[in-house]
């Protein structure tokens, strides 16, 4: 199937890419005297993937939590499809760095958790859970507990749980940061493949510059303490983003550019 067919398939129901628009409008995050992020403005179009990179402590995770409604901005606002975020909006899924699985729930129960909270009928929960588990390649492990699984399989479970809400927006909090290099690589391309089939809005926080370029339609570079938007880079790489793209010269050039932005000392001690 060509890229074009795939895109067409996925977009039968909605014009262009799916997902919601996310508007981060002048967000400042303060904790007591400490300012973690200052006046951040990012607009994410429906179906767009925006990567956020920056050195540790630049407030990228804090920003993600504000979009998730876990933290309230001290100034500014976050809107999802034009609605101000107050608590997590419906249709927002989140994938956590350390998976955030319930150790006392099986894979099945972990994936079904959001559906149970919504009080869906049992049969529907079972059917959708089965489908999601199949989608992330965990069929046969329904009854396993997280501790019986490898890190990669745990994060597959976390991903399935995030997808269970049929998200308009997927928030990724360094989702592959706790995995070994090989596993992370495999999961990256699998997630990209899934996204190509059903493109939704994604805000992708990561430490890895490769990952940021590989996923992002744009890459936002945060810098300084408190973190500010240092630069936004358009990533004009073709879709689908597969291994061939990752080997291309264009990719290498972009990676180099983001790397030098992240490493450049200038905007360092602004606050």
């Amino acid at each position: 199937m060509s890229l074009h067919d795939r895109r067409k398939n996925a977009t039968l129901t909605s014009p262009g890419r799916g997902g919601a628009a996310v508007t981060i409008d002048g967000v400042t995050m303060r904790f007591g005297d400490r300012v973690a992020a200052s006046d951040i403005r990012v607009d994410v179009a429906p179906g767009e993937i925006v990567s956020v990179v920056g050195p540790s402590g630049c407030g990228k995770t804090t920003l993600l939590r504000a979009v998730a409604g876990l933290l309230t901005p001290s100034e500014g606002s976050v809107k999802v499809d034009g609605e101000a975020v107050d608590g997590t909006p419906d249709g927002v899924g989140m994938v956590f760095q350390h998976f955030g699985l319930f150790p006392w729930k099986t894979v099945e129960a972990n994936v079904a958790y959001p559906l149970r909270l919504r009080g869906l009928p049992k049969e529907e929960i079972a059917a959708r859970t089965r489908e999601l588990i199949g989608m992330v390649g965990l069929s046969g492990f329904e009854k396993s507990y997280p501790h019986q699984l490898s890190g990669g399989m745990q994060q597959r479970t976390g991903l399935a749980r995030a997808l269970a809400v049929r998200p308009r927006v997927l928030l990724m909090d360094e989702p592959f940061g706790a995995l070994d290099a090989q596993t992370a690589e495999v999961l990256r391309f699998e997630l990209l493949r899934m996204w190509e089939e059903r493109p939704i809005t994604m805000l992708f926080v990561t430490h890895s510059i490769d990952e940021a370029v590989l996923f992002g339609d744009r890459v936002v570079v945060l810098k300084g303490r408190p973190g500010r938007v240092h630069e936004v880079i358009d990533v004009a790489l073709p879709h689908p983003r597969d291994r061939a793209v990752a080997r291309s010269e264009a990719f290498a050039a972009l990676r180099e550019r983001v790397w030098s932005l992240v490493m450049s000392p200038d905007a360092g001690q602004a606050g």
């Binding site: 939590r65 998730a68 409604g69 608590g87 997590t88 927002v92 955030g100 958790y113 909270l117």
Partner: peptide, 16 residues
């Protein structure tokens, strides 16, 4: 903390 966040992200009520 993460699990509390997971619950919050999925808009869990107090009893759940």
């Amino acid at each position: 903390k993460t699990l509390l966040e997971v619950a919050k992200v999925h808009r869990s009520g107090e009893w759940p």
